[in-house]
Design a protein around this nucleic acid. Structure first.
Lengths: 194, 194
DNA sequence: TTTAAATTTTAGATTAGACTAAAAATGTGG
DNA sequence: CCACATTTTTAGTCTAATCTAAAATTTAAA
């Protein structure tokens, strides 16, 4: 199934970027396999109803194939952003890991991760509209802690806790005012309390 | 390679928990494959120098095999903790994902993830020693301030500041020595500087 | 429009990791 | 200590995804 999804993604990419029928040779190049291997897989994908395949001519995704490809690509983007921007993992490595994970993730997990990286300007996907932000970027106001690094638990910043961000950037929690390093505050995810 | 690592982990688990030679049937049961499949893999692992295998008797990990098994298991623990405790992903799902990731992760990534979940009492592994503690409990040494109550900012205790805890419990910051009340010092979170 | 070049498909082989069935080795109860 | 049960290994198949080499088809050039 993993390889199936990789082929579908590749078809989707070419189809979307170049806006044309995808040829066997395109896929062979993109996936770094021989054309004969591609042909075989295309027969299988066609069999499964993911693509429309006409020998010697080319392929394009069916409705079903596009839905799947898009889902996988969304998972990929979410994880890549998470690794790169949130965990500060090096770009290529972030990509490599995401390529693995995208095939094993569930929607539930994707939503959680999405929540972590979400901010007012979530560029990852239109699907999720979280009113969630990082503490480091939060406007003054009252919030509930959604996710927090354990390092911050000592002062009471744990999931479920209510805190208030002040005008001066300090944070009130349990009646005490704190200043937090960027390193920590960027890892505290909040949801606004109304 | 992925399957190789899974076999090594299984051997490690049994060997460690039961403190005995691992039998073909143990692995067949644990990995849910037929004994004949196990035998085949054991020959391969032996060939690769990961195990000591004596037909009809059993196997145990070689030095090399144990090093690898331990590394993979550490990666697994780190990710499982991360998914379960930090992202609040459901237990089984966290486990399943970690089983995948453990084979694809680099040391750099593991360290980063470890940093996010680290706390005073990191139970994940002895290998990564992140030293995060409250000022009130800190051993003598140099530290960077991660979180601080605003009440302490007057003397320069703000996130990013470097301070030194002395033998007598006093705190040096910006060339001045201070004594802090428990009330304050328990709210200052530090990371040891090396 | 015919022929050469490029692309694609088919046919058959290979590899890793599993399987089944049968043979070999080990362990056990009378 | 021997016959039978259990465990393990060997031998031979199977499947998914790849490969190479050869055949078929399409494209492009003269």
């Amino acid at each position: 199934m993993e390889r199936v999804e990789e082929y579908l993604e590749a078809i989707y990419d070419i189809q979307t970027k170049e806006r044309r029928i995808v040829k066997t040779s395109d896929l062979a190049k993109k996936l770094d396999v021989k054309p004969s291997s591609v042909t075989e897989m295309l027969l299988k994908l066609s069999e499964m109803g993911y693509i429309d395949y006409q020998p010697y001519y080319g392929v394009f995704l069916s409705e079903k194939g596009e839905v799947l490809a898009k889902r996988i690509k969304r998972y990929h983007r979410i994880f890549e952003t998470f690794f790169r921007d949130f965990l500060k993992i090096e770009e290529n490595e972030a990509h490599r890991l995401s390529c693995e994970l995208e095939h094993h993730v569930t929607d539930e997990v994707a939503e959680k991760v999405c929540g972590v990286i979400a901010s007012e300007s979530c560029k990852i996907c239109e699907e999720c509209d979280f009113r969630i932000s990082r503490l480091s970027e939060a406007e003054p106001g009252k919030y509930e802690v959604i996710i927090s690094p354990t390092a911050a638990s000592g002062i009471g910043i744990v999931p479920g806790a209510i805190l208030e961000v002040k005008e001066d950037g300090s944070v009130d929690i349990k009646g005490e005012a704190y200043l937090l390093s960027e390193k920590i505050s960027s890892k505290v995810i909040l949801e606004q309390v109304v």
